[in-house]
C-alpha cells in the first residue's frame, strides 16, 4: 500500500495502517540483502538524492544501500562539498535539485524543521533523515522493527529511553512510535535534559536509570551529543557514573532485558564496551534492519510516482 502521506517528515505523517504495512513487509526487503545478488529492479530509473548537510556514516550509507538494492540511482550531496558552503540557501539548493528531475530527496539537516521546509519548496517526496532535535522517523521504524523481531510484539512491553532526550530527534520519533504501538515508554534523563511537556508524547519520566532497570524489557541508550553541548556544563564522568549502562547495572536489570543504541556510540559514557558487544545487545541488528526499513519506505513512497 502507498503511504498516506506524500513525504515522511515525522512519525505523525504515518497512519496506523502505514506503520503496520511497513513493519509487516520489511522481511521481504531483508531477504534481498541475504541473497548473492543483492539487487532487485523495482525502482530502476528512479533517482534519489541523499542531501546530508550534517555528518553521518550509518544513516547516509543505509539510505544509499537501500536505494541501490532497489536499483534506484542514488546521488550523495554532503554539506562540505556542496554549494551550501558557498552560501547557497537551502531553498536554492532544493530548487536546483528539483530542476534535475529527481524522484525523491532524503535530507539530514542540523536545523529542526528543515525537512518540512524542503518539502514545501519542492514537489518530489522528501524523507527526513534527521532534522536537528526534531525527528528521525526511519530510525524509529527500524528500532520498532528490531524490538518486534526479537520480542515478537511491541504492545505491552516496557522501554526505557535513556540520555539526552532534549537534544535527541531519535528519542522524539521513537517515543511517539512506540507509544502508538502500545509500548510503555519511560524517558530517563538528568533533569536538564528532560524537556518540559515530554509527557505529551505519551511517555512517563524518570531521572534515575537504576529506578527503572528492574522493570523494563528494553534499555535504549541515546548518544551523548558532544557537538551540541558546551564543555563547562557537562561532565562525562559524572554522567557515566549515574547513567552508563555497564555490566554491573545490566546484571541488576530484568532478566532478558535487551540493549539498544542508535549509534555512533561513546563507549564508556552512555554504554560500556562489554555491554555494547554483549549478548543482550541488538545494536548490529538495528543497523541491518535499517537497510530493509529504508527499502520499504523508498518502495512505498516511490512506487506511487507515475513516470
Amino acid at each position: 500500500m502507498p503511504l498516506s502521506s506524500h513525504d515522511l517528515i515525522s512519525i505523525a505523517d504515518l497512519s496506523d495502517g502505514d506503520i503496520g504495512s511497513l513493519l509487516e513487509s520489511v522481511a521481504t526487503y531483508a531477504d534481498v540483502s541475504e541473497r548473492v545478488i543483492k539487487k532487485v529492479p523495482a525502482l530502476r530509473g528512479r533517482t534519489i538524492i541523499n542531501l546530508f548537510l550534517e555528518p553521518s556514516t550509518r544513516t547516509r550509507t543505509s539510505f544509499e544501500i537501500a536505494g541501490k538494492r532497489l536499483s534506484a540511482d542514488v546521488i550523495n550531496i554532503s554539506g562540505a562539498g556542496s554549494s551550501l558552503k558557498k552560501g547557497e540557501s537551502l531553498k536554492d539548493t532544493a530548487k536546483t535539485i528539483e530542476a534535475m528531475q529527481v524522484d525523491a530527496v532524503v535530507v539530514r539537516h542540523w536545523a529542526a524543521g528543515a525537512a518540512h521546509k524542503l518539502a514545501e519548496y519542492i514537489e518530489p517526496p522528501v524523507i527526513n533523515a534527521g532534522d536537528g532535535a526534531h525527528e528521525h522517523p526511519t530510525q524509529a521504524l527500524l528500532d520498532a522493527l528490531t524490538i518486534q523481531n526479537r520480542l515478537k510484539k511491541i504492545s505491552g512491553i516496557k522501554v526505557a529511553v535513556v540520555g539526552d532526550i532534549l537534544h535527541s530527534r531519535v528519542a522524539r520519533s521513537l517515543i511517539m512510535l512506540l507509544g502508538r504501538l502500545g509500548a510503555e515508554v519511560t524517558a530517563v534523563a538528568p533533569p536538564m535534559w528532560s524537556p518540559k511537556g515530554l509527557e505529551a508524547l505519551g511517555c512517563s519520566i524518570s531521572y534515575s536509570l537504576d529506578d527503572v532497570l528492574d522493570s523494563v524489557d528494553v534499555v535504549y541508550l541515546l548518544r551523548i551529543q558532544r557537538e551540541r553541548l558546551s564543555d563547562h556544563m557537562f561532565s562525562e564522568q559524572e554522567y557515566a557514573r549515574t547513567y552508563c549502562l555497564n555490566r554491573e547495572r545490566l546484571n541488576r536489570a530484568k532478566p532478558g532485558c535487551l540493549v539498544m543504541h542508535p549509534g555512533p556510540m561513546n563507549r564508556g559514557i552512555e554504554i560500556s564496551a562489554d555491554v555494547a558487544d554483549g549478548e543482550k545487545s541488538l545494536i548490529t541488528a538495528q543497523v541491518s534492519n535499517g537497510v530493509a526499513v529504508r527499502m520499504a519506505v523508498f518502495y512505498q513512497i516511490l512506487g506511487d510516482v507515475v513516470s
Binding site: 500500500m1 502507498p2 521481504t28 531477504d31 525502482l43 512506487g303 507515475v306 513516470s307
Partner: peptide, 12 residues
Amino acid sequence: ISTNPHPQVAGT
C-alpha cells in the same frame, strides 16, 4: 509499477 502501484509484497 507506474500503472499498477503498490502490489503487496509477500516474499520469495
